[in-house]
Simulated assay, not measured.
Amino acid sequence: DEHGAKVGVMHGCGHDIHMSSFIGTAEQLITHKNKWKGTLMMVAQPAEEVGGGAKAMLNEGLFSKYAKPDHVIALHVSASVPAGKVTMKNEYTMASVDSVDINIKGKGGHGAYPHTTIDPVVIAARTVLALQTITSRELSPLEPSVITVGSIHGGSKHNVISDEVKLQLTLRSYNPDVRNAQIAAIKRITAGIAQSAGLDESDYPAVIVHEDESIPSTYNNPSQTNIVRSAIKNAIGDTNVLETQAVMAGEDFGLYGRTDENIPITLFWLGGVNQKQYARAIKNNETLPSLHSSKFAPDYKVALPTGIKAMSNAAVALFNTK
């Protein structure tokens, strides 16, 4: 990995399905180029898992060095939809994602004399609980919001009160105003708890938002998505195209629709679960392996033809839209 550590590798999110569908779609569109007119632009984007690929490509001039597209479409394999089917929805379909660090300071000392210290572990515990009230008590219940503390590290020994505790958070939302409110509330709450613990302002927690890792929510343009939906239904059948709900996972594909050009985008989900496995799980109320699970194995023999048909026909429909 980037730190020099030896790690295992797997196609846990189905990117082999994505790239195989990508190549198959290109072949189909070129083979049947008499059915459409325009400029085909295929974007093989790296680093989706860390939200860096689309950002880097746009920063390098993707829409200025090459033809600026009128439409942008993408698929992502699904671990909760049976192979042979496609799902999608208009408007928000995936969430914005922010990585936030909170470095909580204190005044360390001996565990036997806590009254001579300001314990950052206790401050961190109060902070973790207080952060839960942002979604539950500060934001409208009609606005989706997730604030998860995924990592907490502090201290080194049983009887030592440390000087610092570090928290790592992930923030999720659809509405940009909610995202801004989350960050503002985190800064206010952490400062307030630090003040109540007796720390000087210079020792209030540092809240670090990793803007380089931030990605916006993915918003499916409704009029374009309706065209895509209709084209895919014509290709694979009405009963195989389903409506889905928005998810709190993030996808940097949404950046293509957030440039000054305001290009309409659509992302749809390609079913990847073996149909018998899906039916058995539903019957027995079992949980299917999720994306990123080592047990997620897409049924590529069914998923690939479906993905290629869906993407090819969606592209042709958009090329021929007046």
Rank of each mutant, 00 (worst) to 15 (best):
E213R: 10
E213M: 12
I215R: 06
I215S: 10
P216V: 02
P216L: 02
P216F: 03
P216W: 01
P216N: 02
S217K: 00
T218Y: 00
T218L: 08
T218Q: 01
Y219C: 00
N220H: 00
N220I: 00
N221H: 11
N221G: 08
P222C: 06
P222G: 07
P222D: 08
P222N: 08
S223K: 14
S223N: 13
Q224T: 12
T225L: 07
N226M: 14
N226P: 07
I227L: 11
I227A: 06
I227K: 09
R229N: 04
A231Q: 04
I232Y: 05
I232Q: 04
K233R: 11
A235Y: 02
A235W: 01
A235M: 03
G237F: 03
D238E: 11
T239K: 14
T239D: 14
N240T: 07
V241D: 04
L242W: 06
L242V: 08
E243Y: 11
E243I: 12
Q245I: 12
A246Y: 08
A246P: 08
A246R: 09
V247C: 10
V247M: 12
A249T: 15
G250N: 03
D252L: 00
D252V: 01
G254M: 00
G254Q: 01
L255H: 11
L255D: 13
G257A: 10
R258W: 07
N262R: 14
I263N: 05
P264F: 04
I265H: 06
I265C: 06
I265L: 05
T266M: 04
T266I: 07
L267W: 01
F268S: 01
W269V: 05
L270S: 02
G271C: 04
G272S: 08
G272Q: 09
N274A: 07
Q275E: 11
Q275K: 10
Q275Y: 03
Q277H: 12
Q277M: 14
Y278H: 07
Y278M: 10
A279Y: 08
R280S: 15
A281T: 07
K283A: 15
K283L: 14
K283N: 13
N284P: 06
N285I: 10
E286K: 11
E286M: 13
T287D: 14
L288M: 05
P289D: 01
S290P: 13
L291F: 04
H292A: 05
K295V: 13
A297Q: 15
A297R: 14
